[in-house]
């Protein structure tokens, strides 16, 4: 499977990819996007099986990416990995069609429980 990791921080993209491995999700192809606009473009060009997206990004934030995808008819599985995990944001994410919201700092266990239904 192909996973798109969208975060404006290269450091955080590396941590997310490392945590994927630690959670047992190695062996998947990973594509990186450095902002929301890049993520939207790469969903169309790379056709990932899962999108892991930060919320707060330049160019286009994560929830706008999700809204744009759903508006265009895309049903790609989409989850947030973000520093903010308030109820307000979880509700907004769910309403937008996100499968989950993982709050930073996260653990391999939180990745395992959130991603297993999609990747296993």
């Amino acid at each position: 499977m192909k996973i798109l990791v969208a975060d404006d921080s290269r450091v955080m993209r590396q941590i997310v990819i490392r945590t994927l491995r630690q959670a047992g999700f190695d062996g998947h192809d990973v594509v990186e996007a450095e902002n929301g606009r890049d993520a939207l473009d790469k969903v169309h060009s790379e056709a990932p099986d899962l999108v892991l997206s930060d919320w707060n990004m330049p160019e286009m934030n994560g929830i706008d990416v999700l809204d744009a995808l759903r508006s265009s008819g895309s049903t790609v599985p989409f989850g947030f990995v973000t520093s903010e995990g308030s109820e307000e944001m979880r509700t907004r994410a769910e309403q937008g069609g996100a499968l989950f919201l993982i709050a930073k700092p996260f653990t391999p266990e939180s990745f395992e429980s959130a991603l297993a239904p999609v990747l296993r």
């Binding site: 921080s9 707060n56 973000t82 520093s83 903010e84 995990g85 308030s86 709050a103 930073k104 700092p105």
Partner: peptide, 10 residues
Amino acid sequence: VNVLGGNLKS
């Protein structure tokens, strides 16, 4: 600071 700020914001 983004992660610290996000948690403090909550």
